[in-house]
């Protein structure tokens, strides 16, 4: 392991673009835990999360050219790859379930106690702070961040105005930010 070596983010990106395996190992050693945590919070299943994490690192390796430092930090870019991959996996998996069990979609967003999934990740990251939100705010974050629905979709699902969805989500995020400190 190359934990004793530290790269600046710029160096790391540069090395990754030059297909430096050492830099990739460093990236894995330093960020796999954080990204695994983020994936786990969304897919809530260890084995599935491992598969997603592998896919995420392969995507990072493949798409590093398209990373734009002007738009955000490397970690933010990786976080969003991880989040999108997790949601995609969940959707392709849930798609099969939802054919048999149409109420799953309703079930998840019917309120505060709609958590039918494994509870083992509730104590980490953003999920841990969710419980501090009001139930009507919590469900919006659940749908937007953890399920990947657009504001328009959420407005339709929850039957509330789009402006309200947007405001509630932004306020919730500001609240969560405080809890994240």
């Amino acid at each position: 392991m190359s934990n004793h070596v530290t790269y600046t983010e710029q160096e790391l990106v540069h090395l990754l673009r030059n297909r430096d395996n050492q830099a990739f190992s460093y990236l894995y050693d330093n960020y796999s835990g954080a990204l695994y945590s983020i994936i786990l919070q969304i897919v809530q299943e260890n084995e599935l999360a491992s598969d997603v994490l592998q896919e995420v690192f392969i995507n990072i390796w493949r798409k590093i050219e398209s990373y734009d430092a002007l738009k955000g930090r490397l970690f933010t870019w990786m976080l969003n790859i991880a989040r999108n991959a997790s949601i995609d996996t969940l959707r392709s998996k849930n798609y099969q379930n939802s054919r048999k069990n149409q109420e799953l979609g309703d079930h998840v967003h019917t309120g505060g106690n709609g958590q039918t999934l494994q509870p083992n990740v509730d104590h980490i990251g953003l999920r841990k702070t969710l419980e501090k939100l009001k139930p009507e705010h919590r469900v919006l974050i659940e749908l937007a961040y953890f399920k990947g629905y657009t504001h328009e979709e959420i407005a339709a699902i929850e039957n509330i105005p789009l402006g309200t969805v947007k405001t509630r989500i932004r306020n919730s995020l500001l609240q969560l930010r405080e809890y994240l400190k």
Partner: peptide, 19 residues
């Protein structure tokens, strides 16, 4: 972003060993 990254690193969950 920095705050989020620090928090995420602090809350890291070790992935399975063979991964």
């Amino acid at each position: 972003e920095l705050q989020l990254e620090k928090q995420a690193l602090a809350q890291a969950v070790e992935p399975p060993a063979g991964l």
